[in-house]
Design a protein around this nucleic acid. Structure first.
Length: 673
DNA sequence: CTTAGGG
DNA sequence: CCCTAAG
């Protein structure tokens, strides 16, 4: 029973700076450039480059924030509740992004759409020019096709001359540049300036391959076609809504026992510990797909998947020992600076009726909103540099719609954090990058930029990138020893869907009512492993829960990874001393289950303490035993009641004996109790 | 993925 | 807490 009133916020999308945080030296410009080897690279390489960029941005980030205390650099605007994710310039801020109001974005505002609660399950696409002078809103097909495109967001990309103006252009937003060599095309279209005053000198289109079926001038027709071509199953999820309930206090985490608001995603398998996720994400190297001759004829939108997950666990610090192969890959995604400039413009407008871009989210309750992230494409200008590189600058990406539910009594700080978590979860999770050319999705990753026409000056105008929920849940193409296998998105596993059941909001309750488990935060009054009180879950003001959406279309899109994985990347977990109550629970569980069944212990007593993995419990037991054996004077930290330590020794002795007995009886078989 | 142990 | 070998 939820006693607290909640405020629901539906965020259709966030504009996310591509480069949340550039090196100090480069931060001023906030631009990051990427250089891609040559023109022969396949489209996938381009994707990997772009996507890799995104991931890389987050990896070096010092982790953050579980214990964030709402100091995030965020601001909330009253009326529209429009939030914007922006790169954080604050040195002390660990985060890459921060949420702030988007109201001030004048140019964006002009593009915003009015809210329209109705037809929320329809998806639309909006195309705008940088100055928003144009706006195309076209209804996209509703239904299957529509779903496919849902959740994707497009970045606006513009290629421009190296002479782009730094002023007035790239202020807050980070930018990413993609530089691709293009040996053949010398003809150039130069885009000067940015935003409203950008202009370009066009060249006649010259297609090497098949010309695009669309006319770039008319966006209204572009989009539908684009959608049309999206494989039905490529994006199994129709929305990115996430309902998050956060604690109503700001969580000035006392010590480490109050992990603070944490987002919990349905898709999460209880058994999967943070650790694994973190590890997977830790491997931030995007492997650029090798030439895939075999797949050359495939039309499918390909994406790489990898076999060995173990390889993906490699952490940053392991890089030095990384095989050359890996390092090479890593190097390849290394960000290079470029003096070349380009202009682009951020895209913020969303096609979503109602919840949109700027004034979006509206403070209104978005209950059951079927908001669907719309795909946004932008106008692009291009420029061909002499060195035959195609230079692109991606100013920003939009994050798919988020759905947040938070208690009325929550503090602004916690709201910020909640949003932050949701956003970072999306960012940190698996995202696919899609390439749009002339509004058409380029699915054949094996084609070269040249072949697809991406390297064509004219085409650069209509080149766009989209970030889409990764259908595979796999934290996107990460480093792997094995060569990536390319598989069409179509056959990838769809994300777990939320039950269509409108009452599903309560379906999560069971998760919260674990046997005397610790709910995310530990309290001194923590329950003993035996008192199974379901009441605890009812108090959802304590923990974060992702509440499923009502509509059948409402699907969990937030990439499987919970909370801000990105920040965890490469980061050692924060130390969280076990509280006495936790020790109590541990001891009790071990007394019952014995040593050697840590997973069971975890499930039994720490089911909801997500930060405690069974390995942690095992380690803790180990230290407990050690602690119990040493003199009280030598012990450190919060003193553990001698009574508990005695039980530890007793239990340890008992189970050790049991184990020994089993060994004698069945030396071969495993120990079962 | 789990365990078990060393670091 | 991390990392890894083993199963």
């Amino acid at each position: 029973m939820v006693l607290q009133k909640r405020l629901d916020y539906g965020f259709n999308g966030f504009q996310v700076p591509v480069t949340p945080r550039a090196p100090r030296s480069a931060r001023r410009r906030s631009a990051i450039n990427k250089r891609v080897e040559d023109n022969s690279m396949g489209a996938f390489d381009l994707l990997a480059t772009v996507a890799g960029k995104l991931l890389l941005e987050g990896e070096s980030s010092p982790a953050s924030s579980h214990t964030s205390t709402g100091k995030e650099k965020c601001t909330i605007i009253n009326e529209s509740c429009s939030l914007k994710v922006e790169p954080s310039d604050q040195g002390s801020c660990d985060r890459k992004f921060f949420v702030s109001d988007n109201i001030s974005q004048g140019h964006n505002q002009s593009c915003s759409l009015k809210e329209s609660p109705v037809h929320q399950n329809e998806s639309h696409s909006v195309m705008t020019t940088s100055n928003c002078s144009e706006r195309f809103v076209s209804d996209m097909l509703v239904g299957e096709k529509c779903k496919n495109e849902i959740g994707s967001f497009t970045s606006k990309i513009q290629a421009g001359a190296s002479v782009y103006r730094e002023s007035g252009e790239c202020k807050l937003d980070g930018e990413a540049k993609v530089i691709v060599k293009d040996e053949t095309n010398k003809r150039g279209k130069v885009l000067i300036g940015s935003g409203a005053d950008m202009c370009s000198l066009e060249d006649p289109m010259v297609w090497e391959g098949e010309p695009p079926a669309l006319v770039s001038s008319d966006s209204s027709t572009k989009v539908p076609v684009c959608v049309d071509r999206i494989p039905q199953k490529s994006i199994p999820v129709s929305r990115d809504d996430v309902k998050v309930v956060s604690r109503d206090d700001d969580e000035n985490s006392s010590g480490c026992t109050h992990p603070s608001t944490t987002t919990r995603y349905l898709r999460t398998a209880p058994r999967i510990g943070d650790r694994r996720i973190r590890k997977i994400l830790a491997s931030k190297y995007w492997k650029v797909a090798p030439k895939l001759k075999d797949e050359a004829h495939s039309n499918s939108y390909m994406r790489p998947i990898y076999n060995g997950r173990k390889n993906g666990y490699k952490r940053q610090r392991s890089q030095m020992n990384m095989p050359f192969k890996k390092r090479k890959i890593f190097d390849r995604s290394t960000v290079l600076k470029s003096n070349g400039g380009i202009s682009s413009e951020s895209f913020f407008d969303s096609g979503e009726k109602g919840i949109t871009g700027n004034a979006p989210a509206s403070c209104s309750k978005m209950q059951g909103a079927k908001a669907i992230s719309s795909s946004v494409a932008g106008q692009h200008s291009s420029f061909k540099s002499r060195n035959s590189h195609v230079k692109l600058r991606i100013k920003s990406f939009r994050v798919p719609e988020l759905f947040i539910e938070i208690p009325e009594t929550a503090t602004v700080g916690s709201l910020k954090k909640t949003v932050m978590d949701a956003v970072t979860a999306v960012l940190g999770g698996g995202l696919c990058v899609g390439v749009l050319l002339q509004g058409k999705k380029v699915r054949d990753d094996t084609k070269t930029l040249l072949q697809t026409g991406i390297s064509q000056d004219d085409q650069l105008d209509s080149l766009g990138f989209t970030l889409e929920p990764n259908p595979s849940h796999i934290p996107t193409p990460l480093c792997s020893e094995d060569s990536p296998r390319m598989l069409p998105c179509d056959i990838l596993q769809p994300l777990t869907r939320y039950p269509p059941d409108p009452t599903s909001e309560t379906s999560l309750e069971p998760h919260m009512a674990a046997l005397g488990s610790f709910i995310e935060s530990d309290h001194d009054s923590a329950p003993s492993p035996t008192d199974t009180s379901a009441d605890k879950s009812t108090t959802d003001s304590k923990a974060l829960v992702v509440v499923p959406e009502m509509s059948a279309e409402a699907l969990a899109v937030v990439p499987g990874n919970r909370k801000s994985k990105r920040f965890d990347i490469g980061q050692r977990r924060i130390r969280r001393p076990f509280s006495v109550s936790e020790v109590e629970a541990l001891v009790q569980a071990v007394e019952k289950l014995g040593t050697g069944r840590w997973r069971d212990v975890k499930i039994r007593a720490f089911e909801n303490a997500k930060h405690r993995t069974y390995v942690d419990l095992k380690d803790k037991w180990k230290t407990l035993v050690h602690t119990a054996r040493i003199s009280p004077q030598q012990r450190r930290g919060e003193p553990v009641p001698q009574e508990l330590l005695d039980r530890v020794l007793t239990a340890h002795a008992y189970w050790s004996q049991q184990q020994a007995k089993q060994q004698l009886k069945h030396p071969e078989s495993c120990v079962l109790v």
